[in-house]
């Protein structure tokens, strides 16, 4: 059974069809890329999966659970985490707090225990803080643990966003343009990094990307979107030579 099963997913924004009839099956431990020109509906697909938008039509099943109609925090709790195209860290909070916040669903104490700092509060807080610091040191950003996250350099902010997503303990990680604003050298490092987190944290990864270098380098399968419709799907080599894809990216006339 696939881990994520998307069937006939469609979404309209007041008449504009942002995504139409999108289908995708993700097996456990797969690394699949969604590509397509600007405005093709890639990020909308992510927003539909994570519950930011409610799909107009279709089904999304994750590990046997229907996701359409669930709230984002419930979906995250089920095991889907994501990053954002334009980094969305909690800027005025410390790097450590950014990661600790993502432990929200795992803290096993009641509001009353929180108000009085009694009962399970102390042990749970220690567990969360230790786990967050451990995660930060695995990502080699623990030196900045008590800095405001807005003061981190750009590359580390991207890393922190991934660390924060992993703190929710996901099975499926959605990466929205992880290579945005990176030079070729940094992209090579990022490819290694994505492979490494997939192995270390036993993740299934779905990523959106513009950078062909990255997508062709690490994705096992690709789905190509254009104007909300799936125009191609398959292995990276097949996609590379698919005339429809070239047309979408480069325009019709050049292809001939």
């Amino acid at each position: 059974m696939p881990l994520l099963e998307i069937k006939a997913l469609s979404h309209n924004f007041e008449g504009l069809r942002a995504v139409s009839d999108f289908n995708l099956n993700l097996a456990e431990h797969e690394l699949v890329g969604v590509i397509g020109p600007n405005g093709a509906g890639k990020t909308t697909v992510f927003n539909l999966i994570t519950g930011v938008y409610r799909a107009s039509e279709g089904n999304i099943r994750f590990a046997g659970q229907e996701l359409v109609g669930q709230t984002p925090h419930r979906i995250t709790k089920l095991g889907i985490a994501r990053t954002f195209q334009n980094i969305r860290l909690f800027r005025e909070l410390s790097v450590l707090d950014n990661v600790r916040i993502a432990h929200y669903a795992q803290a096993a104490y009641s509001p009353l225990e929180a108000l009085l700092h009694l009962g399970r509060y102390r042990s749970e807080e220690k567990r969360i803080t230790d786990h967050a610091l451990e995660l930060l040191s695995v990502f080699k950003i623990d030196a900045f643990a008590f800095e405001h996250s807005k003061n981190l350099p750009y590359g580390l902010q991207r890393k922190l966003e991934i660390a924060r997503a992993l703190a929710t303990n996901p099975q499926l990680l959605l990466l929205d343009e992880p290579a945005a604003g990176m030079n070729p050298n940094e992209i090579m490092q990022l490819m290694e990094f994505i492979r490494w987190i997939r192995k270390t944290f036993h993740l299934t990864i779905l990523l959106i990307e513009h950078q062909m270098r990255l997508v062709m380098g690490i994705c096992e399968r690709l789905v190509v979107l254009d104007f909300g419709a799936t125009i191609a799907a398959g292995l990276p080599v097949e996609i590379q030579n698919n005339p429809k894809v070239l047309e979408a990216y480069l325009g019709g006339e050049i292809v001939k």
């Binding site: 969305r88 860290l89 993502a102 929200y104």
Partner: peptide, 8 residues
């Protein structure tokens, strides 16, 4: 929105 997506 990020907060909701981080399971809060």
């Amino acid at each position: 929105i990020a907060s909701d997506l981080m399971s809060v």
